[in-house]
């Protein structure tokens, strides 16, 4: 019972942290500025061209979500250390693992609530424009985007235990972009390399987080058929397992950290 009360307190703190900062409001306003004109615009008088606006809107939602969730996650522990709030926090009768879990869960919940808001807005605008909306693909895109955030934030959270927030954000940003651009090409690259390099690329392929599994924007934009739910759920399960490993490592490091 005590653990539940403690977790609730920690989650609430993270939620208040995100909701009361101006950067979230700025990002929400920016997204609105991009999404709302979508419902009125018909570029060049060509009906199908509005898909390009959808593509831009979804790309911005991805970028904004990445920035919001990663900056907040990367700053949880460094901010506690810089402002010295870590001392009263650790002096309370809660284990370090529970403190990490509560703070991380709060940021994740706050990020996912913003994601849901963006996707709801996207769906609303598209329904206003056209009677046909691919609900199944939208649901898959939302689920996989949530998996993507889980994957990205868990790695940022692990980094935040031992790296400065800005450096952490840059490193994870590079990993995310690299994997989105080149992740699916690694198996092709492996075939042409020397044995040593082949082993190295194989290790990278198995260790690196595969963000490219989670991007189904094109299907949503062009109203393509949904992917099998088994594959969708497997990708989400991959994100959950990967983030649990990252969280376990973060807790192990944090429990040994001299503060």
């Amino acid at each position: 019972m005590n653990h539940v009360i403690q977790l609730k307190a920690l989650v609430r703190l993270s939620l208040l942290d995100l909701y009361r900062r101006k950067d979230l409001i700025v990002v929400a306003m920016l997204t609105l500025v991009v999404l709302v004109p979508m419902s009125f615009a018909t570029p060049f008088g060509v009906k199908g061209a509005s898909r390009y606006l959808n593509e831009i809107a979804l790309l911005l939602v991805w970028i904004f979500m990445l920035v919001i969730s990663m900056t907040r996650t990367a700053r949880i522990i460094p901010t506690e250390l810089e402002s010295r709030t870590i001392y009263p926090l650790l002096s309370k009768p809660a284990s370090r693992t529970l403190i990490l879990l509560g703070r991380y869960a709060g940021v994740l919940m706050a990020s996912l609530s913003v994601l849901l808001l963006f996707y709801t807005l996207y769906a609303t605008i598209n329904i206003l424009k056209s009677a046909v909306f691919p609900w199944e693909v939208w649901l898959q895109a939302l689920l996989l985007h949530a998996g993507f955030i889980l994957l990205a934030t868990s790695l940022a959270f692990l980094g935040s235990i031992f790296i400065h927030a800005d450096a952490n954000f840059s490193i994870i940003g590079i990993i995310v972009v690299s994997m989105l651009l080149y992740g699916q090409n690694i198996p092709v690259l492996i075939a042409d390399q020397t044995p040593a390099l082949r082993h190295l690329l194989k290790v990278i392929y198995w260790i690196a987080p595969h963000y490219e599994f989670f991007d189904v924007r094109t299907r949503l934009i062009h109203h393509w058929p949904a992917i099998p739910w088994l594959i969708c759920c497997a990708a989400f399960a991959y994100a959950v397992i990967y983030s649990m490993i990252c969280f376990g490592l973060a807790a192990w490091l944090f429990n040994r950290k001299k503060i």
């Binding site: 019972m1 005590n2 009360i5 403690q6 609730k8 307190a9 920690l10 609430r12 703190l13 208040l16 942290d17 009361r20 900062r21 402002s83 709030t85 009263p88 926090l89 309370k92 009768p93 809660a94």
Partner: peptide, 18 residues
């Protein structure tokens, strides 16, 4: 926590103490 008021701060620490 700069974005909390005193009531919220004490509610947070109270929660941590169970």
């Amino acid at each position: 926590y700069p974005y909390l008021n005193i009531y919220e701060l004490l509610a947070f620490y109270g929660g941590l103490c169970g």
